[in-house]
Design a binder for these strands. Structure first.
Length: 316
RNA sequence: CGCGGGAUAGAGCAGCCCGGUAGCUCGUCAGGCUCAUAACCUGGAGGUCAUUGGUUCAAAUCCAAUUCCCGCAA
């Protein structure tokens, strides 16, 4: 089939590569977000999808607003469009450009976790499993009829980044299978059960502020889910931000004082913090302007007194 | 030219403003102590202070340029 690939995020890269490699399909064009100033120095940066497309010699389109770009897309005469982590809402007119409509690859088991951050949401919800869903897009946000799903069990060692990569690696198989079914006219369309739907909005850094009144178990999960993005952090007694990269729950923790209190802080004991329920050991940190470090190394050069309070602004 | 911080022993940091013997915590090595320990005590090794140039009797420290690293913001 003639396929139009629409996507920006890295999560679509394996699927994109699979489409390029598939002999039964022909990628007729790529639509991705315009290059944006990014990184230190605000240099214009092209998405990985764009870079890969250019390598493969495929036409790249970067409309500011895809809804005003319908005619150019029609010119490509795609049979179907594949949309993964594009970053713009597709209007009805855009959705109707391809003869067979638009397929979306979504990184959750719909109708759970519709929206922008399904991977982190599945972890935070402590779901037993998550996966990828291939669906026909309609005008709603991740509400279209489902073609198929592939599942993945969540593990205690999963971080948001690791899960992201595993789901990205899972996507090509699911996508190709769905395309084959559609090409053969054997695809089924299962409407989503809207009564079970949940939504997640875009994540911001502020979502990563650790609220010490929550339990150590919840906080550990948050740290994992938000690693590497948007990351989690707390504030030191002086008010400086301290990023928290990894943490673990201290088993058999005794009853502790006020949430956010430093229970131990030395290169030998590590950095232990009282939470609303249980004790959390912060194992890897990063201070402003410094590199990420094991907490014990951090403590070798920074004094942090037992009894000090972290995250003062919020947990007061 | 978006804003800002940093580079000093194997690791993490102080010292720099106010030039003059290289310092702290940890690790490491040796010895000691203890029923025992992420325990404690004693002693040792380990550094062209990012690079290059300048100022000076003298530069980790002051000046200039370069390289690399990171935080914020997007």
């Amino acid at each position: 089939m003639r396929i139009l690939f629409i996507g920006t995020g890295d999560i679509g890269l394996p699927a994109f590569n699979a489409l390029l490699a598939a002999t039964q399909h022909h990628v007729v064009g790529v639509v991705t977000q315009p290059d944006r100033p990014a990184g230190r120095g605000n240099k214009l940066t092209a998405s990985a999808i764009k870079q890969r497309a250019l390598e493969a010699g495929i036409e790249v389109h970067q409309p500011l607003k895809i809804r005003n770009y319908v005619e150019a897309l029609q010119a490509l005469q795609p049979d179907i469009a594949v949309v993964i982590a594009y970053g713009q809402i597709l209007s009805k007119a855009v959705l109707e450009v391809p003869r067979l409509g638009c397929l979306n690859v979504h990184a959750s088991l719909l109708p759970l976790h519709r929206g922008a951050a399904p991977i982190q949401a599945a972890m935070l919800a402590n779901n037993a499993e998550t996966g990828v869903t291939i669906m026909h897009m309609d005008e709603g946000l991740d509400t279209g009829d489902v073609v198929l799903m592939d599942r993945l069990l969540l593990r205690p060692d999963h971080t948001g980044g690791l899960l992201h990569d595993e789901l990205a690696a899972l996507a090509p198989t699911s996508l190709l299978e769905a395309l084959d079914l559609i090409a053969a006219g054997k695809a089924t369309r299962t409407p989503q059960d809207n009564t079970n739907a949940t939504h997640v909005g875009k994540l911001t850094r502020e979502h990563g502020r650790l609220d010490w009144t929550r339990s150590a178990v919840e906080l550990e999960r948050l740290v994992r889910a938000y690693n590497p993005w948007p990351g989690t952090f707390t504030t030191l007694p002086e008010g400086a931000v301290l990023k928290v990269h990894t943490a673990r729950v201290v088993p058999d923790a005794e009853v502790c004082p006020v949430a956010g209190t430093v229970v131990a802080a030395s290169p030998k004991q590590g950095l232990l913090v009282a939470t609303g329920h249980g004790i959390l050991e912060i194992t890897e940190v990063q201070a402003e302007g410094r590199k990420r470090l094991p907490a014990r190394d951090f403590l070798a050069g920074h004094s942090l007194e037992v009894g000090a309070r972290l995250g003062g602004e919020k947990t007061a």
